[in-house]
Design a protein around this nucleic acid. Structure first.
Length: 554
DNA sequence: ATTCATGGCGCC
DNA sequence: AAAGGGCGCCATGAAT
């Protein structure tokens, strides 16, 4: 069912779509679009086709519309298809897709900065379609073309699944952004006060930070701003501590008393700056933290957020995430997701065997590293990230010997990237092409391993090496989220997804429904494994904890 | 006064 | 010889 909202007012138009994307029946013009969608959703539960979930679904919910089960987000699908076709970076709005179909100039996605407000808003409502185009006709046309393009790819079944999962994610993102993460101002206050001292008036520096700054100055024997690396480096040098940088990793190796104080200062000042009282006033309303999720905000398919640092909430602060009375948070975390993805994708028998038990790192350690789990973890991370420095290089050699098929997968991806090629995730999300200037000199003297060109090529190789893993993990996570969203809706309207962070979800639910939610989580994890990786023997467990505070889940 | 690059650190 | 992937956000300090 294709749907467009009128640019102003509450009306819109709908029309049915057949299997081939052609229209079925006539166009319905309605004055209350939210109501029409509610009725059709209840009667038929169709896949809603629209130009952009962020705009249309948001508007429907604003006007009292129902939550819908499925959609096809033309903008997100366009982005996936542009990648499939090696045309990354082209504008992806409905209007741009329509213009491409007609050989017309493509409107850019981002409106010109500094332009008049009125045309920009109008353009957004119409998804950048020209004034004389019929939005519903354009939508139907672009959707049909997208269906054909999906079918024209190497693995239409997987791309179809990816498009469905991406679109379902967009529904979940809008819903989560509206529901928000339960955030207790009181618990947050207690935490901050315990760490930083009482809240200072007028945004001044908290007492504890002032004290630490003073003690750092005393230890270094001169006035210095602890927030300024440029001042700290010479100050440390003057007391006989030459530092390459003021990073924590560097400071931890240092004996001088100022180093420990500075480490503590950095830790606390970050909490204060990034998630302190000012943050709460900006981002928490009515007991909910409402970040704005950006689906497809990362090329790998991970989400980003706009504002509030939602995906970087420091672990200690998760004690402020408290379920409502009579409710629980079901926290579900996919442990060791990326190495499991590598095992499943590559089909490496040894690694799959290691993944079969509960602790993949421990099993790899048993197989290849004399039971040394930390080294096994470093070795796996090195394989997936391309680290070669330090002991990682030697561990990698062991990995290559013991898990040749898995290593061949990531190393092939790295070689493709170094040569300027593109790689794909399990479901067919495509890595961007390197910028043109990055590979100007392909034939650069290969003997000159340290040339800027070679360095850039190797860096891009690390990116594509990681892309196949990270993006496939995102494939799984998205499929899981889509399945979970559907399972939760079947339980009822009370359990709500309230947080999603790469490989972890949080559901806020009445306490008596927590067991049902945990079952839904397990079912979703297994469905995602089956859909994304088929018959793999590699399990993808989603560990759940039903807790009152997010911090209690670990 | 505002913008931009950099260093740094939080999360995965 | 090679020096770990992806993000968002903050403060600083220089440039505009």
């Amino acid at each position: 069912m294709a749907v467009v909202a009128d640019p102003v007012g509450s009306g819109g138009r709908l029309c049915g779509l057949g299997e081939d994307g052609g229209t079925v029946g006539g166009t319905a013009v309605v004055a209350d679009l939210a109501r029409a969608v509610r009725e059709v959703e209840a009667a038929a539960g169709p896949r809603w086709v629209w130009g952009g979930t962020e705009e249309v679904y948001q508007g429907l919910l604003d006007r009292g519309g129902v939550r819908v089960g499925r959609c096809h987000d033309v903008k997100l699908v366009e982005s996936l298809l542009l990648g499939q076709e090696g045309r990354h970076g082209r504008p992806r709005s409905l209007g741009a897709a329509w213009a491409r179909l007609h050989g017309l100039p493509e409107p850019p996605d981002a409106p010109e900065a500094g332009g008049d407000d009125q045309p920009v808003l109008f353009a957004a409502d119409r998804h950048h379609l020209p004034p004389d185009a019929d939005p519903l006709a354009a939508l139907v046309e672009v959707h049909a073309a997208q269906q054909r393009r999906i079918g024209a790819g190497d693995r239409p079944d997987r791309m179809r699944l990816l498009c469905a999962a991406e679109s379902a994610g967009a529904l979940a993102a809008v819903e989560m952004g509206r529901d928000g993460l339960p955030w207790s101002a009181r618990a947050h206050d207690e935490l901050l006060t315990g760490l930083l001292g009482p809240r200072p008036a007028g945004g001044a520096r908290p007492a504890r930070l002032g004290e630490l700054a003073q003690r750092i100055q005393d230890a270094l024997g001169r006035p210095v701003n602890p927030d300024s690396p440029a001042q700290l480096l010479p100050a440390f040098a003057r007391v006989g501590v030459p530092l390459a940088s003021t990073r924590s990793h560097e400071l931890r190796k240092v004996e001088h008393p100022a180093a420990g104080l500075l480490l503590r200062y950095k830790e606390l000042s970050r909490i204060h700056a990034a998630h302190g009282w000012a943050w709460r006033e900006a981002w928490v309303r009515d007991g909910r933290f409402r970040p704005e999720y950006v689906v497809g905000g990362v090329v790998s398919g991970r989400w980003a957020t706009r504002g509030g640092g939602a995906l970087q909430i420091p672990r200690p602060l998760r004690a402020a995430v408290v379920a409502d009375p009579g409710h629980l948070l079901v926290v579900a975390d996919a442990g060791q997701l990326e190495p499991r993805v590598l095992a499943a994708m590559s089909g490496d028998q040894g690694l799959a065997g290691a993944a079969a038990g509960g602790d993949l790192y421990a099993a790899v350690a048993q197989d290849a590293f004399g039971g040394d789990r930390p080294r096994a973890k470093i070795a796996l991370l090195a394989a997936m990230y391309g680290q070669t420095s330090g002991e990682a290089g030697q561990l990698l050699a062991v990995m290559r010997r013991r898990f040749p098929v898995a290593l061949a997968l990531v190393e092939a991806a790295a070689r493709t990237g170094e040569a300027g090629g593109i790689v794909r995730s399990q479901l067919g999300r495509t890595s961007p092409a390197p910028s043109a200037d990055r590979f100007v000199d392909e034939a650069a003297d290969p003997a000159d391993g340290a040339s800027p060109d070679r360095r850039a090529a190797r860096s891009w190789g690390r990116f594509t090496r990681n892309f196949v893993i990270q993006a496939s993990a995102a494939d799984w996570a998205l499929a899981m989220l889509a399945a979970l969203r559907r399972e939760l809706a079947a339980i009822g309207s009370a359990p709500r997804l309230v947080f999603f962070q790469h490989d972890e979800v949080v559901v806020h639910t009445p306490a008596d429904l927590a067991p049902a939610v945990e079952s839904a989580v397990a079912a979703a994890a297994d469905e995602a494994r089956r859909l994304v990786f088929g018959a793999t023997p590699v399990p993808f467990p989603l560990e759940t904890h039903a807790v009152e505070r997010y911090a209690d889940a670990k």
